[in-house]
Nucleic acid binder design. Structure first.
Lengths: 344, 344
DNA sequence: TCTGGCACTCGGCGGTCGAGAGTGCCAATC
DNA sequence: GATTGGCACTCTCGACCGCCGAGTGCCAGA
């Protein structure tokens, strides 16, 4: 589609624009691209690129700016992604070397570090109950009328919830019920605990129906309208980008970032794509508030299973190659660490 | 200090400015204050108020704007705080009527609702381990080499942590150690678990020293650099305020809001004041990024004990009476709900 | 096919100007 | 003595204007 000189020019143009945030003129490209022709020739090529929809002119007699299509081509074909530099890799490793830090904190820190390293906004979702499998549950007596429910999952996560304990249930009756639940549900994905199983437990232990009901409420993930386990880092970084100097643009964006539910869907959805790292550019985004942004996402795995998602949100004029390299490194380290914590 | 007419004028001026965000002229006050004198008279009074430092003039021939001192006098002496309207109170009650929602989610929602109701930024800190007392701990065997530590506190909170289990400790030896810990620490504030007690347990059960060490790591609150349990709501609301139209002002502010540690200190510190509700206005704030903001804070109690803090951050031109009324209502409801959840 | 030259276009910047809002002061009035 | 209407003055803000510079498109020549 594009001959090699046009590719070089487009690449130089995108990278120059990423650096400067200013429309790029033919002179700058002549210097930077290394194609060795004069600005006049570049101008002709740029007119072609514009006709093909890869670049745009903010107004006559300004330089060119990459269009959505231009960024897309850059991301898909032109950019070269490298491994992050040594010190950066070291920083990522350091993040995960303290084994006593709880998973939550790990995820939170990951978001913080990613946002610092990129100067964009980072979104990291940690392991979620609804993607885990049931391993075992346990009820701990707290006092006469409260029980603490501890739910252990296959990947070493656990969830605890305080339950009101219906009176007059003997401890051994309760234990028997728990044992029954444990054998029936073992290995089940929590996303769809068959209500059939719960039903039979309920029938088997009629005196504990309300208790079973409470347990169901905990292990069946709710409407997930709460954004537990999703962490943002560097939301204020958006304000540093010159494209968001206009307040009205950034306001809608920041409001969107407060909607945990939407962000989670966004992450999960775009990371579904059959590629390692998914990049959604400008107008490709579903939400109008994000039309001037790009979102780079990836799922991370522990033991071959997706356990969470990572995303970086920045302006379309994002340092894609840097971000993609960084996410790749982080997703691997994070996955590895979670696998390491997985219980035998 | 101020005669009653000046007070009326100052009150009208502050309230008009809160409504309009524009410097207030003598005409507007003549209409609003109800003192029944002409604008010319008001002008004379305003000149006095300016000399006394209660109001300022952005430039000659503009209206007046309240100074920090003016706001202070308004908050301390002039404003009338009422109970929030019926529907608002109902909204607050609704927030807490579902007993199955975990405390974390309750706190998060509180922040969300407060920010919506005020259109400012809400900060809510939930009950913290370090302010709780030790009740009991329990170790649950997860598998051969992991234990789940469950720590119950006096106010019905609990904390769980996964520990690596040192090998070759018989279960009954471990249980004995737990029992010993439980009797020694019962009722202790977690903020300062005496290391003397831990020391004797360590001596008593020499084969479990590493385990005791892990437990100590959990129950002694860490450096609390993590901002667990602090929730923000409506940070994007700051951008709606006309005083933050200048990007550079809001950027530092939003960055500050990302520093959980600082916010927690701020909340705890300002809510220490010997009043129910503390108001910190503009220049009174320690951090320069907050010099154009006011912070209204309160501690909330359950059973006479402070368990957390609430704060509302907005522009100096804040609707103080509304905010104070709202915080009062919320802190009572929230405290009541947490007390209700407290274990017998 | 490439290049240098050249006329053209447009946004940004600084300066000027008039309108409008609100003041301070003064003399008259209650 | 307090209050008031009148009036000149000050200052901001938006509109308007012209200049400058960057960058283009096009063309003729290499």
């Amino acid at each position: 589609m594009l001959d090699s000189r046009k590719e070089k020019i487009l690449k130089a143009l995108v990278e120059e624009y990423i650096d400067t945030a200013q429309p790029v003129g033919s002179g700058a490209i002549a210097l930077r691209s290394g194609v060795g022709v004069s600005p006049a020739t570049i101008r002709n090529e740029m007119a072609d690129l514009e006709a093909m929809g890869f670049v745009e002119q903010p107004h006559t007699s300004a330089g060119r700016v990459p269009s959505g299509r231009g960024y897309r081509h850059y991301v898909d074909q032109l950019m070269t992604v490298g491994r992050p530099a040594g010190p950066v890799m070291a920083g990522i490793r350091d993040l995960y070397d303290d084994r006593s830090v709880p998973v939550r904190a790990l995820i939170r820190r990951t978001a913080g570090v990613l946002s610092e390293m990129t100067e964009y906004t980072a979104l990291v979702e940690g392991p979620q109950l609804e993607r885990a499998t049931f391993k075992r549950l346990e009820l701990i007596e707290v006092n006469g009328d409260h029980l603490l429910l501890v739910l252990l999952t296959g990947d070493g996560l656990f969830e605890t919830r305080l339950l009101e304990c219906p009176p007059h249930i003997p401890a051994d009756y309760r234990e028997a019920m728990v044992t029954s639940l444990n054998t029936r549900l073992a290995g089940r994905p929590l996303g769809n605990v068959a209500s059939r199983d719960l039903e039979s437990v309920r029938r088997e232990f009629p005196r504990a129906v309300t208790l079973v009901e409470s347990i169901r409420g905990t292990i069946e993930p709710g409407d997930s309208t709460e954004s537990e386990g999703l962490f943002l880092g560097g939301t204020a970084n958006m304000l540093k980008q010159p494209e968001f100097r206009r307040l009205e643009k950034v306001e809608g964006l920041l409001s969107l970032l407060e909607q945990g539910r939407i962000l989670r869907d966004l992450l999960a959805e775009s990371a579904l794509a059959p590629v390692d790292i998914s990049v959604t550019i400008g107008e490709e985004n579903r939400y109008p508030q994000m039309r001037e942004c790009s979102l780079v996402t990836a799922a991370y795995q522990a033991g071959g299973q997706t356990v969470g998602y990572i995303g970086i949100l920045g302006p379309c004029r994002m340092r894609y190659s840097h971000v993609v390299g960084l996410i790749t490194a982080v997703k691997e380290s994070l996955g590895r660490e979670l696998l390491r914590r997985r219980l035998a």
